[in-house]
Structures are given as structure tokens and as C-alpha cells.
């Protein structure tokens, strides 16, 4: 295989099987430094599984996963439960996996908008605050690759835009790659370079524009939910130009194959 100069990670035909069932299969993904890749897809499409393949918490049952040597990952998992028996303040959470200076912690908390919560216990945070803390934790270690599994779940709509701007800003200043999993089928972060539409396999991928006009995409995901989209656009989104709208990605049959 030819190595790309700033290739952070490459997945080639990667798949994960559990109990003779394929959770995902045939995943091809190449991420370069400074690139933002967004994965969309319905529930149970294998988005989190793909993220776990990328960060290495799951091994591929087939295919290949190749990481740049010395790759520094910052990971925000989709779910994290912290046992109440573990006393843990936000400031301590920030140096969970690596030593971090007090100043760097302060900057990270400020960036995600929870500077006032540095001494709060993580178990006391609201869902949105906790997500911000997790994002601060992942970015404070200055990763080459940020893997964010639904990082804005539980965050209100306006803050969502602010966090997306922040992620873009991190990419711009540090040049890290960002693999982002969207919790919302309708929304892909502005400045996404590549969109991966997933449903057990990659339905289609490419630049946001090319994906919307992809006939495969239209055949699979077009027509549905257009009414819902219109409502979304009119009522809620104050920043229409900064977004790209897709439509719902549906599981076509139980094997996750296109009908």
C-alpha cells in the first residue's frame, strides 16, 4: 500500500463481526492532517463501531487499519458513565491520560465555555456541560487526530454552532484531523471535507455537495423527511449558510444492504 505523506489513518475494507453478524463491513477511510470527516447514518448504522476501529478500541475482523506511527488521538466516546465512588473534578479529568499545565487546562475550559466549572465534580454536570468537559479533555492534549462521537449530544442548538466553530478553529490552528460523528442526520458541520454516509456499510461518500447529488444517495435517502427539513431550516437555524443539509439515511433492509 502506498503511504500518503500526511495520512493519519487508513482503513481498507475494514469490517467488524460479532457473533457471526457484521456490525460494519467494507469501510474505506483515509484521513489526512487538517481534514474534517463527518460520518452520518441512522441509529445502529455502525458509526460508533467505525470510530472505535479508528481509535483502536476495536480490532478489525477483516481488512486493514493502519495508523501513523506516534499518532496522538483525542477521543470523545459516545457514552461515558463515571462511577460516583470516583471523586473527579473537571480539572482532574483534563489530565486523565497525560500531564497538562494549569494554563492549558484554563484555556481549554475557556474555549468550550465552562471555565467556571473547573472545580465542579463531573457527576454534577448537566449533559451539555459534560460534553463540553469531554471535548476540552480531548483537545487539551493537542492531538493529531480528534475523534468525536456525537460530541454535541445534549447541547442546545446555539451552543452546538459555537462548539462546531470551536472544532473548526482547533483544526485551523493545530492542523489536526477531525473525525466527527453527527448525532443528527440533518446536519453536517460546516467545513466538512468529506461526508461518509453509513448504514452497516458505506452508502456513499465524498464532498458534501457531491454526496447530495450522488444518484446512489438520492435513490437511498432522497424523498424522505423533506418536510422535516424545511421546518428545521425555517424555525431553528439562524445560520443557514454555514451548514449543509442532508436528508435521512435509512436502513433499507435488515442486512444493511441497499435494496
Amino acid at each position: 500500500m502506498t503511504r500518503e505523506p500526511n495520512g493519519l489513518i487508513t482503513l481498507e475494507n475494514a469490517g467488524v463481526r460479532r457473533d457471526s453478524r457484521w456490525l460494519v463491513r467494507g469501510i474505506d477511510l483515509r484521513m489526512r492532517a487538517g481534514e474534517i470527516v463527518t460520518i452520518i447514518g441512522p441509529n445502529r448504522a455502525g458509526k460508533s463501531t467505525t470510530a472505535q476501529l479508528v481509535v483502536g478500541t476495536l480490532r478489525a475482523s477483516e481488512g486493514r487499519v493502519q495508523r501513523q506511527t506516534g499518532l496522538r488521538v483525542g477521543y470523545v466516546p459516545q457514552k461515558l458513565h463515571i462511577d460516583p465512588a470516583l471523586p473527579m473534578r473537571v480539572n482532574r479529568l483534563l489530565d486523565l491520560t497525560a500531564m497538562v499545565s494549569v494554563e492549558a487546562k484554563r484555556r481549554a475550559l475557556d474555549a468550550v465555555g465552562i471555565l467556571h466549572l473547573g472545580d465542579a465534580f463531573v457527576q454534577d454536570l448537566s449533559g451539555g456541560e459534560f460534553q463540553r468537559a469531554l471535548l476540552a479533555r480531548a483537545m487539551v492534549r493537542q492531538p493529531n487526530l480528534l475523534v468525536l462521537d456525537e460530541p454535541v449530544q445534549g447541547v442546545d442548538f446555539a451552543s452546538e454552532v459555537m462548539l462546531y466553530n470551536l472544532i473548526k478553529q482547533i483544526r485551523d490552528t493545530t492542523g489536526c484531523g477531525v473525525l466527527m460523528i453527527s448525532h443528527d442526520l440533518h446536519i453536517v458541520m460546516a467545513d466538512t471535507d468529506t461526508v461518509l454516509c453509513l448504514n452497516g456499510h458505506i452508502c456513499c461518500s465524498g464532498s458534501p455537495d457531491s454526496v447530495v447529488s450522488n444518484p446512489e444517495y438520492l435513490r437511498l435517502f432522497g424523498a424522505h423527511d423533506t418536510a422535516g427539513l424545511a421546518v428545521y431550516q425555517h424555525d431553528h437555524d439562524p445560520y443557514p449558510s454555514s451548514r449543509w443539509y442532508g436528508s435521512a439515511c435509512r436502513r433499507v433492509n435488515q442486512h444493511g444492504l441497499p435494496a
Partner: peptide, 19 residues
């Protein structure tokens, strides 16, 4: 200690970030 705490809090994050 850092590895022990990280693995206790979240094995996934620990693994992803090299501990």
C-alpha cells in the same frame, strides 16, 4: 497511577489515547 485511573474511568479513552 495515571494508567490505573484512566483505565478505571474509561477503558475506551485510555486505550484510544495509548494507555
Amino acid at each position: 497511577w495515571r494508567r490505573l485511573i484512566a483505565a478505571t474511568l474509561s477503558p475506551e479513552i485510555a486505550e484510544a489515547e495509548g494507555l
